[in-house]
């Protein structure tokens, strides 16, 4: 956020609890016995995210649902493949290459990425283009924070993202289901929107690998595939970047991919959705415009034909 560079410090500028807790544990670990490990382990795993009002009134899906029903084609096309295979992904160390129209290009380690950010818990609706949905208590921070660190230059109009591509760790990429690496993109104003977050965890714990560890995008008013997982590269660019599903079929998957019950996918209706976890007799319900975030984001698309620009 631009706030990072002003003098009026806020609570957001305070070292996150997670960071200082880690520091203490490092000291304790260094000083003490091996037995400490058993105490440090679970404590370090918890992200100590600040609770927020996002999603008040929403009932999150159980962790079990969120971590067992995934689309992460790098690990297979079945919904249960990611939970089976994602353990192969090495997430430590991890870094993100930030390049393009930025003042501070370079390789950002996870420590660099997380430095000075406050992790928040935000409960968001998550709507897949396949008409299922869930409610997820993400832990993350605004993408704008990271873009602020990188220093977005004037000419930048879009942000492009890339998922890791590691054939030796990702059995799914051996088959060319789509063109790898997985790519996504946002218009700069969408990327800077306060609802757009980079998530590093869910349910207060570090991100499970099948959900896009160690860091993924979450754009709650767009179909799930826009929320790219396991990000290794972020580029600030002038032109609209190519995106994975749009490259596969532009007619089916638009660049914007805003959740829109009035614009059907050519192969199925988008009017209704079903929340996962409801069993065999789970009822469908009506999908909300912009997935229920109309008030917050409709302004981004004023005057645009959302059927044409789907």
């Amino acid at each position: 956020m631009s706030g990072c560079f002003k003098e009026d410090l806020t609570w957001r500028d305070v070292t996150p609890k997670a960071a200082w807790l880690n520091r203490r544990q490092l000291i304790a670990g260094g000083a003490g016995a091996l037995a400490m490990g058993s105490i440090v382990g679970p404590a370090a795993a918890s992200l100590n995210a600040v609770k927020t009002d996002y999603g008040a009134g929403l009932d999150p899906n159980p962790l079990e649902d969120i971590t067992s029903y995934n689309n992460f084609y790098e690990f297979g096309t079945g919904k249960g493949d990611p939970v089976q295979n994602a353990h192969m992904l090495t997430t430590e160390p991890w870094s993100i290459e930030i390049d393009g129209l930025v003042d501070n290009p370079g390789t950002y380690s996870m420590e660099d990425v997380l430095e000075g950010v406050t992790l928040e818990e935000r409960i968001y609706r998550f709507r897949c283009v396949e008409t299922w949905s869930m409610v997820v208590p993400w832990v993350g921070f605004e993408l704008a924070d990271l873009l602020g660190k990188a220093g977005v230059q004037d000419g930048a109009r879009y942000v492009a993202f890339e998922t890791a591509y590691r054939p030796e760790e990702m059995p799914g990429v051996r088959s060319r289901v789509i063109e790898w690496p997985y790519r996504e993109g946002l218009r700069l104003d969408e990327a800077m929107h306060p609802l757009t977050i980079l998530a590093t965890g869910l349910y207060g714990e570090p991100m499970p690998k099948q959900n896009g560890a160690p860091i993924r995008l979450v754009v709650p008013w767009k179909y799930g595939y826009k929320s790219i997982k396991s990000i290794v590269r972020i580029s600030l660019v002038r032109e609209q970047p190519p995106t994975a599903w749009n490259m596969y079929s532009a007619r089916e998957y638009g660049f914007f991919s805003n959740v829109n019950p009035n614009r059907d996918h050519p192969r199925w209706s988008q009017k209704f959705e079903r929340r996962i976890g409801g069993g065999l007799f789970s009822k469908k319900f009506e999908t909300l415009m912009f997935n229920g975030y109309e008030e917050e984001v409709a302004g981004l698309y004023e005057g645009m034909d959302l059927i044409k620009n789907h």
Partner: peptide, 12 residues
């Protein structure tokens, strides 16, 4: 499907 053996979205 009835006992949860078909995962989180048993209908599909």
């Amino acid at each position: 499907g009835l006992s949860g053996g078909l995962g989180a979205e048993p209908i599909k």
